[in-house]
Amino acid sequence: MAWILQSDRPIYAQLVERLKTEIVSGVYPPGGRLPSVRELAATASVNPNTMQKAFAELERTGLIITMRTSGRIVTEDTAMINETRRELAEEQISQFLTQMNNLGFDRSEIIELLSERKGEDVHE
């Protein structure tokens, strides 16, 4: 399936986010091998140069590493992966809080609403 992309933002940034999510969620585990740029570009139905650019960004941050012989792997640094996970979570929370603000909820109301949901943890 082609990845679903938003129309109002650069495609490259969306690929970076999607790849980060797949790494922190274990689709690509620490030390695991990543598909080639071409394969992943075909899967996502995006331009290979754009996918290459997304890979380069993840390499720059150290989340993925290019091996001389065996393509690209995910870092084995689980602290770094956890930190990325945390960053992604912060972004989601910020978006959520903005939306809730728009609905007129203040922080304490939001927390109260959330605590009502405590215990209904969803496992997929």
Binding site: A2, S7, D8, I11, N47, T50
Partner: peptide, 30 residues
């Protein structure tokens, strides 16, 4: 999503050549 660049042609003239990402970056739209 599979394009690097686009060329806009209008009435026989090129009105724009740009990368897809530049258009999305600059105008905030596809």
């Amino acid at each position: 999503p599979i394009l690097d660049d686009v060329i806009f042609l209008k009435d026989g003239e090129i009105t724009l050549t740009s990368s897809v990402e530049d258009i999305r970056n600059t105008y905030g739209k596809s």
